[in-house]
Design a protein around this nucleic acid. Structure first.
Lengths: 246, 246
DNA sequence: CAACCACGTTGATCAAGATCAAATAAAAAG
DNA sequence: CTTTTTATTTGATCTTGATCAACGTGGTTG
């Protein structure tokens, strides 16, 4: 199955789905023209590695569709996912030559890539991309720090509930219909374990426990319905809903 | 003892100790003049809270001397430190009104504060502060992600060894004399526990264990000497020395 | 269809670290 | 110099989640 790194035809930036949330969100017409010139799409199928930690990276990219993960791996095989990249999220760091993490396509994935050199030049000449990138970096930093609380202090049950809660809130933010909360978890049990600092068995057990208690309803391997969001929040251990206080 | 939030006289930016590493590192003469006008110093004694999570924040700041912590606290009292701020590190987020974490003076602390409004205006008009802030935010993000690996996957022993290793390397980077590695840990056992996602008892036990094995030598409560840095690295579980791969 | 495979669930046992409790040690206060 | 307070160490026990192992389930492939 796994199709090798095929190239798709990118749409015009104007028509792009992530135009108003990605790193290009505040780009003016002239900036957008430059981006248009240096961009190219790359597609990956689920499971493919986009880049290995330590590899030279001659591009930066935005996730257009699909989900990617950033993962740290220790020599003895222990893995910790340090980021889950959704559409509009940014990959790469201007000013850095080598990747600091493994980047993997968790689902089928389409990236909008920019050659690094011209992208950096543009950043130094016009402000809007850099501005947006700063904002996104600070958001990521907040997310990373929320995750530090989860990894350092929450129980397995709270970790699972927090994870589902984050997914559900992100989902609800996109689609205005918030009557029924039903999500598709984009990760396998093992990937959830890597994200939450658990083993896959513990993830499975806690999912079962939440199901038994009626806090979630599962359908198939990936489907999760949340009948009472407040109850899930409760189980997650954060009364504010895990939101960053703005 | 705890002196209330006294104000000290700031030196000229030119003479500032953190001039070349802080958010103002790349500021030109004209930018530095603006900063000079809107800056003021605030001092805190060890243990004082600089700002509570959720509080309105009308300033941003750089740490000039001393150590501050960023901490998440859950309603039931569980705490996770999500950042340790050393001289030149930045506090606050442009574009945000309220603090997202508790900021506490871990040692006696001097901050160089900038009123937020003029600071933000400056950022939108001249590029150098924003550029530097982006760079610093991306560095912080890397540090947060390295900490996620520590919190999610490392054993108590590895956590302690990693922490000491990070402190020692930072210290060695400043003072060129790298013959003998001796550091002063700026945190109590409880603060270390909050940083590492452990209990203070476990921190104490693992410190004792590393001492018994000769990997560290302690002097007083805070002093730690590292006779064989490679052995500490080994105990930390990262062969590369925990460095972010650039 | 049968065999296989990837993914998920569940059970039994074990170990790392948390918790509860006490004893030291060192610093601050009187 | 003694008392008080706070930080730290150490011990005994318990709990959570890891580990090892078996079994289920759905989908794909020959």
């Amino acid at each position: 199955m796994a199709v090798q790194d095929k190239t798709a035809t990118p749409p015009r930036c104007e028509d792009c789905l992530i135009r108003h949330r990605a790193v290009c969100a505040r780009a003016e017409v002239d900036e957008l023209q430059i981006l248009e010139q240096i961009k190219y799409y790359r597609s990956f199928s689920a499971g493919q590695t986009v880049i290995w930690s330590g590899d030279e990276m001659d591009f930066v990219a935005s996730v257009v569709t699909g989900v990617a993960s950033l993962t740290h791996t220790m020599e003895d095989g222990r893995r910790q996912m340090v980021g889950l990249l959704l559409p509009s999220d940014f990959i790469g760091r201007p000013g850095r030559r080598r990747a600091a993490y493994d980047v993997t396509a968790v689902s089928d994935l389409v990236l909008c890539c920019f050659r690094k050199r011209p992208f950096e030049e543009m950043m130094s000449k016009t402000p809007h991309v850099a501005d947006r990138l700063l904002e996104m970096a600070l958001d990521e930093l907040d997310a990373a720090r929320e995750w530090m609380l989860l990894l350092g202090r929450k129980s397995a049950r709270e970790k699972i509930a927090s994870f589902l809660s984050v997914l559900a809130r992100r989902d609800a933010a996109l689609r205005a219909s918030k009557d029924i909360m039903a999500i598709e978890v984009p990760l396998t049990r093992e990937e959830m374990a890597d994200y939450l600092g658990l083993t896959l068995e513990t993830v499975s057990r806690q999912m079962s426990a939440l199901r038994r208690e009626g806090i979630i309803v599962t359908s198939g391997k990936r489907g999760v319905t949340i009948p009472d969001f407040a109850a899930l929040q409760q189980a997650a251990g954060d009364d504010l809903g895990g939101d960053i206080c703005l």
